[in-house]
Computed example of a mutant assay.
Amino acid sequence: MVDIRLESMTQGQYETYRQAGPLSYAKHISKTGITSLSEAEERAEAEYQKLLPDGILSAGQYLFAAYVGGTEVGTVWLHLAESGVTSRAWIVDLWVHESRRRRGYGRAIVQEAERWCRGRGVEQLSLSIFSGNDGTRFLFEGEKYLPVVLQMSKLL
């Protein structure tokens, strides 16, 4: 088992993340074939602005850098929200640095994010995965996440 430590992003880490995040998200959107990359970039930027209006100080948003020892291996962004009587959180983004992939870091980051959420009374942790992102889907299926909705689309 990999020993992962989550630490709140520094302002510098956030700025780097914020520059790269929307484009990465847009690429996942456009790979589905439902929109062009330029349209996906606009959508991604709008969503980031909506969710992170105050950067790392945005209410309900928790952005972490993940470390093994002193080495940063990835990031995770959690959104906490009250949904009726259930405290629910979303994994908005999970990223393992490309040079660190296939070493169990993604799984360890997920498990540490779950521990962090449990410590705050979160009862349900959810996420969305774009079609074609099989590695991420397999990771979460291996952690006993269950599909809730299958959304399908067709361009006309």
Rank of each mutant, 00 (worst) to 15 (best):
D54R: 05
S83T: 09
E141K: 08
K27S: 08
V73N: 12
R18Y: 15
G55S: 01
E42M: 05
E143K: 06
F138K: 15
I34K: 12
S99G: 07
Q13M: 10
S8F: 07
A65D: 14
W95S: 14
Y105C: 08
A89W: 01
I109W: 01
E114G: 00
R101S: 10
G74K: 02
A113H: 01
T32G: 02
E41C: 14
G121D: 04
A113V: 08
I91T: 06
E82W: 03
E123S: 05
V68C: 12
I34V: 08
L51G: 08
H97A: 08
H79R: 14
G106A: 09
L6F: 03
G70D: 09
E143M: 09
A66R: 07
I4P: 07
I109F: 01
G70M: 11
G106V: 08
E141R: 15
Y67T: 04
E98D: 14
T86G: 04
S30G: 15
D93P: 04
V92Y: 07
K50S: 05
I29A: 04
G70A: 12
E7G: 11
L156K: 07
W77H: 04
G33Q: 09
Y17S: 05
L125E: 04
D3Y: 07
L37V: 12
L127R: 13
A113M: 01
V76K: 04
P53Q: 13
T71M: 06
L150S: 04
S58F: 06
T16R: 07
D54C: 02
V76I: 00
V2W: 01
Q11R: 09
G84S: 12
L6G: 00
E41A: 13
Y48M: 02
L94R: 04
A66W: 01
A26G: 05
S30I: 11
E45S: 00
